[in-house]
Design a protein around this nucleic acid. Structure first.
Length: 328
DNA sequence: ACCTGTCAAGTCTGG
DNA sequence: CCAGACTTGACAGGT
């Protein structure tokens, strides 16, 4: 099995390259010229996109082909006081340049809308802002020129005292999504509410690929299902029919990995990745999985990726293939 | 230059 | 029913 590693949003090694610079509502309001304030938002967005491109260039130099873009590229995107603002008008070209670079260098990009995007909600206003948020994430992917292999990953959401009903609401809303959005979704098990097994059920009912988070599974699973490798054949199945950007090659399944910050605070993310549990999982699924993409969710971002590669290189059973990939 | 509090969002818990 | 916790990087204002 060939494993590629990636990381999230920002680099610890590229300095002054935040892709998430923003502006508060208060400081927006303080500017007396609204048009100028909007132009300032657009300048910040341009800077965020440019910094993302700088990060991709750094990634290329280190063989990193997997990356999740920040959801905060466009400051105050979706805020109700900016309903009349279409930021994409001035950003299309910058997004196109970013996407072209990713495609040229065979990079797999994604988004992970914040956990305020909840399709299972019983509240109409929360649903409509969630739908707007998904729409805008997909619009950004389209502006980058990326095909449907570039996904938006979300969780099922809250349960509101009745998980079954919440899950059914999610499914109904999900099926009603426009096709261009639905085809770009992946669903991930969360650390508190919807387990891997429950998320997988929803993925199967909606024909949607599942992103397994092995740390979330560790802290949130049914008593009788401690081993997530048991679910793997079904999870693999949810990825069939998906193809890589601009080709007929199969799109590798993706998983998330993080490590607990401490025993007491088991849900929070640690600075680095403990290779033990990850390698155990990888070895257990390797026979049936030709390729796998692993998204690292660690506070130290790409530093954690490079540290993990060091750990991998000292393991006699593994073969390092590049600065960010290896064979299990 | 550094520190502390605040900001955004939605859900859930405790009082 | 309302306040606070949760999460996260970055702003904002103070020293």
């Amino acid at each position: 099995m060939i494993v590629r590693l990636g990381y999230v949003a920002m680099s610890m090694q590229v300095s002054n390259a935040s892709p998430s610079k923003t502006m508060t509502v208060t400081s927006f309001d303080k500017l007396n010229n609204r048009a100028a304030a909007v132009r300032k938002l657009e300048r910040i967005a341009m800077e965020n996109i440019h910094n993302t491109l700088r990060i991709l260039k750094h990634n290329r130099a280190h063989d990193i082909e997997l990356f999740r873009c920040s959801s905060k590229l466009i400051p105050l995107r979706g805020h109700e006081m900016l309903n009349d603002w279409d930021p994409m008008k001035v950003l299309t070209e910058a997004f196109a340049e970013l996407g072209s670079y990713a495609i040229q260098n065979e990079m797999r990009l994604s988004f992970h809308p914040d956990h305020f995007t909840v399709l299972s909600t019983p509240r109409a206003e929360v649903l409509s802002s969630s739908l707007r948020d998904l729409e805008s994430h997909v619009t950004m992917l389209e502006a980058m020129g990326l095909d449907e292999s570039a996904k938006c990953n979300i969780h099922i959401g809250g349960m509101y005292g009745d998980k079954k009903a919440a899950s059914q609401r999610f499914i109904d809303r999900f099926k009603a999504l426009p096709e261009r959005i639905r085809n770009r979704m992946t669903l991930e098990n969360d650390d508190k509410t919807f387990t891997a097994s429950e998320t997988l059920d929803v993925c199967e009912l909606t024909n949607t690929p599942m992103v397994l988070d092995i740390h979330h599974h560790e802290v949130n699973h049914e008593e009788d299902k401690t081993d997530c490798a048991e679910l793997w054949p079904r999870i693999l199945q949810t990825w069939t029919g998906q193809t890589e950007q601009g080709s007929d090659q199969e799109l590798p399944p993706k998983i998330h990995v993080s490590s607990p910050k401490s025993e007491k605070d088991a849900r929070s993310h640690a600075d680095y990745i403990d290779p033990g549990p990850l390698l155990t999982f990888l070895r257990s699924v390797a026979p049936e999985t030709p390729r796998l993409d692993v998204m690292i969710e660690a506070k130290k971002k790409d530093d954690a990726l490079f540290q993990l590669m060091k750990d991998v290189s000292t393991d006699a059973g593994l073969k390092v293939l590049s600065q960010a990939s290896f064979r299990v």
